[in-house]
């Protein structure tokens, strides 16, 4: 298991997440794609930690996980409050500030 394979896997997962954010319209699925991108970055961190032989990469991944958990809480609360006022979870329908 060479590090280059793991790094490429993390790139591929990150790109799939980015494409998901671009093409999906459901706010919750877009949010899941953001989580996928964070996870891909974590994989790169852990791989680099093993490559360099110190644990700082693992600590960075740990802090990314903490921030991601806080972000999910706030993001889902925003989605729920948008759903409450507009009765939809689609990002196309939240367009009051568009024009």
């Amino acid at each position: 298991m060479t590090p280059i394979n793991l790094i490429v896997l993390s790139f591929v997962l990150f790109t799939i997440g980015a494409v998901g954010v671009l093409v999906r319209r459901n706010a919750i699925v877009m949010f899941m794609c953001v989580e996928l991108m964070l996870n891909a970055a974590n994989l790169a961190f852990v791989t680099f930690a093993r490559m360099h032989g110190n644990l700082d990469g693992q600590i960075a991944a740990f802090f990314v996980m903490v921030v991601a958990a806080a972000e999910v809480v706030v993001g889902l609360a925003i989605i729920v409050s948008i759903f409450r006022t507009r009765r939809t979870a689609s990002v196309d329908d939240a367009n009051l500030l568009k024009y």
């Binding site: 793991l6 093993r50 693992q58 999910v72």
Partner: peptide
């Protein structure tokens, strides 16, 4: 990859808590 702590945190925090929150919403 010698990161057992992160593996458990990944299962507990992501698969357990975050995904459960997603499904709840």
């Amino acid at each position: 990859q010698d990161a057992p702590f992160l593996a458990f945190v990944q299962v507990i925090v992501y698969t357990g808590a975050v995904l459960m929150l997603f499904l709840f919403v």
